[in-house]
Design a protein around this nucleic acid. Structure first.
Lengths: 208, 208
DNA sequence: TACTTACGATACAAAAAGTATCGAAATAGG
DNA sequence: CCTATTTCGATACTTTTTGTATCGTAAGTA
């Protein structure tokens, strides 16, 4: 972690210092309000005043915890989404685990969570801190997780040994982000299933 | 075209009606200024006042041509980008044409054009008119063009006959948009070349 | 009890999108 | 040439939103 980058959340000194402790309940209410507003209206209906009003909280309390709108959006997104997209821990084949996780990701991103993510990526194009927070705090860890499964699948002889894992991750996950941000077609399980199968088999004529 | 959707550009009646004709030179200057600002600073440095100042034009003139900030960004992008990404017209094999066009797209999107597109997609998450204009005025036509080549490659026996063209397009172009919007890695020709080859061959172990 | 910090509320400053108004300029038709 | 019409650039204005500052109060610690 580069300490020159602004933290996603401000540090909490409530236990070390004297004075009134910071209100964890208010923090939770803010996160929930932020995520709810993002889910309902995307980035359009998401403003600091609206979040404060919905959480029953002063605006200053929000800025005491998070430094900017983008940071708050990221925090709300993480709090709500992180539990939803974990890899299955079964003793399955790695390839099956990868496939099932991809279907799950497509399913989740097709719903409100996808709208929130699109909003964060949009905000990220405007504010470098937000996109950095998204990559470091969400995308990269997920990608690392996926790469591990991918390499396991290669080791177990389920996938070609000569693959570039980064490129394979892009081929599998890139189209999801694409359909999430550019409405060229639906993002559903049937589509995702076809995509996975297509990438698995390749598009070239099989050599007889 | 659904006429209920706001047009990307307002109609020009300067030749039919009386009065001072609309200034095409001013229009061109605005488009150029808009695109330059987007290339230089992305969505951050892109504002109507800034465009007007740079083009040496009143703000009202901009709004006389385009109804909103998003529409202007789209127009500037189209004017500058449309010539850059045409399909090669050679008598090559369809597959080679497709591959060369993908490499060209990756090359172009890796530069300033990619920053402009990212800005437009970001604005599009906020303003439905903008994303619609982008899809209808840019993404969809490109996609149609690519699909034609793709189907030619299938017809010519260069690709599997059982493919879903939409899914293949997502697999090839989706990762480009992904890397353009989420900085997980570089977007260069070497990467693109590996991606194309990976999708062609598939990632599963070849059946011996 | 004194001190310290966070709380909610609210006023405020700054920036930007889009609208309204103005006199000047350019064109068509008479 | 003259008048009506429309666009021109300039500028003031309204509205919205982000982020800061201020203030009296609440809730802890020493």
């Amino acid at each position: 972690m580069d300490p020159s980058l602004p933290a996603l959340e401000r540090t909490d000194h409530s236990h070390t210092r004297a004075g009134r402790p910071r209100d964890r309940a208010a923090r939770a209410a803010i996160l929930q309000a932020a995520n709810a507003l993002l889910e309902e209206n995307g980035i359009a209906g998401f403003g600091m005043e609206a979040v404060a009003a919905r959480a029953g909280v002063g605006k200053s309390t929000i800025y005491r915890w998070w430094p900017s709108k983008g940071a708050l959006a990221m925090a709300g997104f993480l709090a709500a989404t992180e539990p939803k997209i974990s890899y299955p821990k079964d003793g399955d084949s790695a390839l099956d685990a990868l496939r099932r996780q991809l279907l799950r990701v497509a399913e989740v991103y097709a719903g409100p969570t996808g709208r929130v993510m699109a909003a964060i990526l949009a905000e990220g194009q405007r504010d470098p801190h937000t996109i950095t927070a998204f990559v470091e705090g969400y995308a990269r860890p997920r990608r690392d997780e996926a790469r591990t499964i991918l390499q396991a699948a290669i080791t177990q002889g389920e996938l070609r040994p000569d693959l570039d894992p980064e490129v394979v991750l892009d081929a599998l996950y890139g189209p999801i982000y694409y359909r999430m941000l550019v409405p060229v077609g639906p993002l559903d399980i049937k589509w995702m299933d076809t995509l996975v199968q297509t990438v698995l088999d390749g598009i070239a004529l099989p050599r007889l």
